[in-house]
């Protein structure tokens, strides 16, 4: 029964959803500090190309994820300088990250001979659990069948939730995102916290991008993320800035992404272009539906100071 359509699609949804989850968790931390970074797509691309390069050349998954994450952090810090220090419009700054990330990753990916574009395979990432567990009916492939990154992303979800709601640092972070003036008066370093939170967002997107190119897709192409970063940004809104819901949502989007594969297995004939549309239609509908529900909108509002630059002098 482990090769039934349902079991296989749930298992693949979890893998496909993991890059989205990593990026969305990072963005939740960033936005909770009051910084909106729309550049997730660009940070994933840069993390993706650097991680792919490191993985293909060294064969080390750890190193690839680390360097991919650092590339994401580097780009995120550019946003921090623009949005936090120079206080330029955060939407425009985020968009500039998308474009510079796309351009830089395309340039890096096509450099060298042979370039990454000609590099056929990613890394074979081994499953974490022994064969005996993976052979269990249903729960084998779904629960025990994955590589270590999938479980680390799950752990990171728990960690992010614990950090935000149960630690003093998490409280400080949320305070800065809700009312930076009050947080500043209470002695918190608003600029430092926002820089750190933005860097964590870059880390999530960078690692997510590296995992996507190396393990999920096993290939590098220009613009290989194909909108996944934007799905992650939408997911943050849908999840109401909460890590737990982001995990659920990421797996659902991962499942929608893999729908063509699923339907192929089930021998249902739907044009592939329409299947490619589904995650985006779903994200569109859910963003509108979330806005249409005033009760929910009150309960899970965005951080009050989201996208507002903070300046002591302008208080």
């Amino acid at each position: 029964m482990n090769d039934t359509v349902l079991v296989l699609s749930i298992a693949s949804a979890i893998v496909a959803g993991t890059p989205i989850l990593l990026a969305a968790l990072g963005e939740i931390i960033t936005e909770r500090s009051g910084v909106m970074n729309l550049g997730v797509e660009g940070m994933m691309l840069v993390g993706g190309v650097v991680g792919f390069w490191a993985g293909v050349n060294t064969g080390s998954l750890t190193l690839a994820l680390f360097l991919g994450g650092m590339a994401g952090v580097a780009l995120a810090l550019v946003h921090a300088v623009l949005a936090v220090s120079l206080r330029v419009d955060q939407t425009v700054s985020g968009l500039s990250l998308v474009i510079v990330g796309g351009g830089l990753s395309a340039f890096l990916g096509s450099s060298g001979d042979p370039s990454l574009l000609q590099s056929p395979n990613g890394l074979d990432v081994n499953p974490l659990f022994p064969q005996s567990l993976r052979d269990l009916p249903a729960v084998g492939p779904i629960v025990f069948g994955h590589d270590i990154v999938v479980y680390l992303a799950m752990l990171a979800t728990v960690g992010a939730a614990y950090f935000l709601y149960r630690t003093p640092s998490g409280l400080s972070l949320r305070a800065v995102g809700e009312d930076p003036a009050a947080a500043d008066a209470a002695g918190l370093n608003v600029v430092r916290i926002r820089y750190l939170a933005t860097a964590v967002g870059g880390l999530g997107a960078g690692v997510g991008g590296a995992y996507l190119t190396l393990a999920v897709l096993g290939t590098w192409q220009n613009g290989v993320t194909a909108g996944l970063g934007w799905i992650a940004v939408a997911l943050v809104i849908l999840a109401g800035w909460r890590p737990g819901l982001a995990l659920l949502g990421a797996y659902v989007f991962g499942g929608l992404r893999g729908l063509s594969f699923t339907l192929q297995l089930a021998e249902v004939d739907v044009p592939s272009d329409f299947l490619a549309m589904i995650p985006f239609v779903a994200a569109f509908i859910v963003v509108v539906a979330v806005s249409a529900n005033p009760k929910r909108a009150r309960r899970v509002a965005a951080p009050a100071a989201l996208a507002q630059p903070y300046s002591r002098e302008a208080r």
């Binding site: 500039s96 474009i99 510079v100 351009g103 395309a106 990916g109 096509s110 220009n222």
Partner: peptide, 22 residues
Amino acid sequence: IQVEVVFLLQGLIFLSVTAGEF
């Protein structure tokens, strides 16, 4: 030189102009 230099330059220009807004 690869075509992708075009995307790189576009990104750098956008970034630089955004920073220039300050």
